[in-house]
């Protein structure tokens, strides 16, 4: 898939993480090679490997707070309906809150074009091979928006339930989407992402019966992994269930 994951950079074997490249290379340098014994020293660092991103994310968070923005990081698998969900949210909130969107994809600005039809400001980030947005990309994209004219900034992350889980962008709320056409066990398969979300939204509910969606099972799985998350069930297409979500957003914005 991509260089960031490591899956594209080792001869094309997608399973490098799990197998094949196991433990053999670990101690491949002979100690004699560079005279370990004389003059070598050990320095304790105790630094987080996410420290750089976390620091930039905190800077974003402080900046957004000063601008009185409510910031959402919307994550899901590809095709769960993030763009339609955000577009409908913007259209239906137009009277009450002003939305702006930063949207990330590997390639194309198709999502940005779709979002712009809602008459809202949109900045597209095309990440190339990178499978997630990071805090630095968001800071640069946010600089292209007139934040003083916004109440809510929505960041539509790259469609991926794995990598974006570890990257804080400086958001107030992480919103994870689960569409009824995906398996009910998605939350169990991708627990870090679902666990890290403060809000879980079940989308495409108008297709539930056609997809044979087992609602009770999906909700039980969601609650098992994200027992702290607020859950909404809706269809952005028909508008069913949108009101509760929109009222929730208005309340969240008022609390910023």
């Amino acid at each position: 898939m991509c260089q960031e994951c490591g899956c594209g950079s080792g001869g094309g074997d997608v399973k490098i993480g799990g197998h094949a490249h196991g433990h053999e290379p670990e101690h491949h340098h002979a100690h004699g090679d560079h005279g370990h014994s004389h003059g070598s020293k050990t320095l304790n660092l105790n630094l987080s490997l996410m420290e750089k991103n976390d620091r930039l994310a905190e800077r974003n968070r402080g900046f957004f707070r000063a601008k009185k923005l409510l910031v959402l990081n919307v994550v899901s698998s590809p095709g769960s309906g993030k763009t339609t969900f955000i577009r409908e949210t913007a259209v239906q909130l137009a009277e009450r809150l002003r939305l702006g969107v930063i949207v990330g994809d590997l390639a194309t600005d198709n999502d940005a074009a779709r979002l712009k039809t809602a008459g809202i400001p949109v900045v597209q980030i095309t990440t190339g091979t990178v499978c997630h947005l990071d805090a630095d990309m968001v800071a640069k994209a946010a600089a292209q928006l007139d934040l003083d004219k916004l109440d809510v900034l929505v960041i539509e992350n790259v469609g991926n339930l794995v990598c974006p889980a570890d990257y804080d962008l400086g958001e107030d709320l992480r919103v994870v989407l689960l569409s009824v056409t995906e398996g009910e066990d998605k939350p169990l398969k991708y627990p870090p992402m679902f666990h890290s979300a403060g809000v879980a939204v079940v989308t495409k509910c108008d297709l539930a019966s056609a997809a044979g969606f087992n609602r009770e099972l999906a909700l039980a799985n969601l609650k098992r992994v994200s027992h702290h998350a607020r859950i909404f069930e809706l269809s952005a297409k028909t508008g069913d269930g949108m009101k509760a979500w929109l009222d929730f957003l208005v309340k969240q914005r008022a609390a910023v």
Partner: peptide, 27 residues
């Protein structure tokens, strides 16, 4: 529960060490 796979990290290590002061280092 960090979300990274140690085997994949070992594999990536060899690649990212190349042409740096850490080339040939152990992990």
């Amino acid at each position: 529960l960090s979300g990274v796979v140690p085997d994949a990290m070992r594999f990536a290590f060899d690649v990212v060490c190349r042409d740096t002061m850490a080339a040939g280092a152990s992990l």
